[in-house]
Design a protein around this nucleic acid. Structure first.
Lengths: 159, 159
DNA sequence: GTCTGAAATTTTAAGCTTGAAATAAAAATG
DNA sequence: CATTTTTATTTCAAGCTTAAAATTTCAGAC
């Protein structure tokens, strides 16, 4: 497994670039649609949904740094989003016994209920938006991406 | 719904959701890496690269609204990015004869030269980052995404 | 011509995002 | 212990992004 040589006429790099442009495009299409629907249906945003989703899967709460690493966004970014979600009563910061630097964040009862409504709609929307892909294509592509991701390192979780 | 249980009864939507989460993940990984490298190597950003790329492919220039539509970002967004790239001397606004509302933007000679340097590196980086995918997987996935995209809505551009 | 509505662009306010600097507390070192 | 280093988080400045409002100009109806 050696690095590929880099000729500007390398056909493999052209194919990779073609794939990358399509990944980018479908991502933008789906994200734009999800953002619009989250806004209209729930008055929320994708980053807020992502944070609530992470906390929903971790009912005991997560430290800010854990959230930041899982979502692959900066620490300061998480601070702001959690601030606003806390103001809205969907989550709260708790002290971590034995470490006065850290903060543990978890969903409130209200936040759990709200996220469950959002998640149900979200799953339907995603399936609708990717509906052009057959079940076989869907599964195969997810598997292919899985191998690409493991080779790329840095994959933390994954079912 | 209990915490931890986000599944619906529909297995197809489950698979679509799984694929979507992986698309998101690889997108974030690759974008984070490209952003970092563009910053360190060229002192620029992904949105700036995208705008320059669009203009490079349209040497006669594009109207702001055309840029906005092609890149799938808002009008106001394009305004700010073009403003800053213009200050840097990489592009300029020209009047459109017969329509005093519109502005045509095109790369300067300097902008063309700068983009060519960036694009060469960019193509290598993308190929390196997607290197975990074999040529066959790469081609098949790009084709599958192509069909998903045509079904998803109108796709304007290329092959 | 004048009006009215549509189109192209910019402006604005709010939120998202980053990288870097600042705080603060824990851990390691001597 | 005191000092240094590392870790967790927040703050900050700059840029990105959107949706909505405001401007300016065009084009069609009258």
């Amino acid at each position: 497994m050696k690095p590929q040589d880099q000729s500007s006429a390398d056909p493999a790099s052209k194919e990779h670039l073609r794939l990358w442009l399509r990944l980018l495009k479908i991502n933008r299409l789906v994200e734009a649609e999800l953002r619009e629907r989250l806004r209209l249906s729930f008055g929320t945003t994708l980053p807020r949904f992502d944070v609530m989703s992470a906390l929903y899967r971790n009912p005991k709460g997560m430290k800010m740094s854990e959230l930041s690493r899982l979502l692959m966004v900066s620490n300061g970014n998480v601070t702001g989003i959690v601030d606003r979600l806390t103001e809205d009563g969907f989550m709260l910061r708790e002290a971590v016994p034995g470490d006065r630097r850290a903060a543990r964040v978890r969903l409130t009862r209200n936040g759990i209920a709200e996220f469950e409504r959002q998640a149900a709609a979200h799953e339907e929307w995603v399936s609708e938006l990717l509906g052009g892909l057959s079940p076989e294509d869907t599964r195969r592509m997810a598997d292919d991406l899985g191998t690409a991701l493991t080779l790329d390192r840095k994959d933390a979780d994954d079912a």
